[in-house]
């Protein structure tokens, strides 16, 4: 019998509340606010309290899907990356780099957001970078 609590940061918004995942026998069964975390001090909103539910949800998307002829088909990550790269190159060649925009997210980490803007500016060659929190 195993019961442990894994500390993490809530992935729902950019606030960064400290949370504890309750893991019993290797299965995630609950989320708790972290009492000593400087951001949320033991409090959470309703989304944070239910964070564990989407991890175990049957509706969770675990593989990339490509839509062909109006239908989604499951593919592996290599195929998905290759397909995305080919399509991006095609669009950039035809319409120029400014025809592409990159939208980053408060739910991603600082490092991931940095990489995304680097990708937009250095790889694609556009300044069309924006963020969901800049509404």
């Amino acid at each position: 019998m195993e019961c442990k609590f894994v500390h993490s940061v809530c992935s729902y918004c950019g606030t960064g509340c400290g949370i504890l995942f309750q893991v019993v026998d290797g299965r995630l069964i609950g989320t708790l606010p972290m009492k000593t975390h400087p951001v949320n001090k033991g409090k959470l909103c309703i989304k944070g309290w239910n964070l564990h539910e989407h991890v175990n949800s049957e509706l969770r998307l675990k593989n990339p899907l490509i839509k062909t002829f109006g239908r989604f088909s499951r593919v592996n990550w290599d195929t998905a990356t290759r397909y995305t790269a080919d399509r991006l190159q095609e669009i950039i060649k035809k319409h120029g780099p400014d025809s592409v925009g990159v939208l980053v997210s408060a739910k991603a980490t600082n490092e991931e957001n940095y990489l995304a803007q680097k990708f937009a500016r250095a790889v694609i060659g556009t300044n069309n970078v924006d963020h969901c929190a800049r509404l």
Binding site: M1, E2, C3, K4, F5, H7, L20, M34, K35, T36
Partner: peptide, 29 residues
């Protein structure tokens, strides 16, 4: 105590060495 935060934990006999890191508070769960 995990990285300066007292967090709840289930100690079992497979990991007896963990008990040395056991604290009583101050956070309460």
């Amino acid at each position: 105590m995990v990285e300066g935060h007292p967090i709840p934990h289930g100690f079992n006999r497979d990991r007896l060495d963990e008990i040395d890191e056991m604290v009583t508070g101050p956070a309460r769960y």
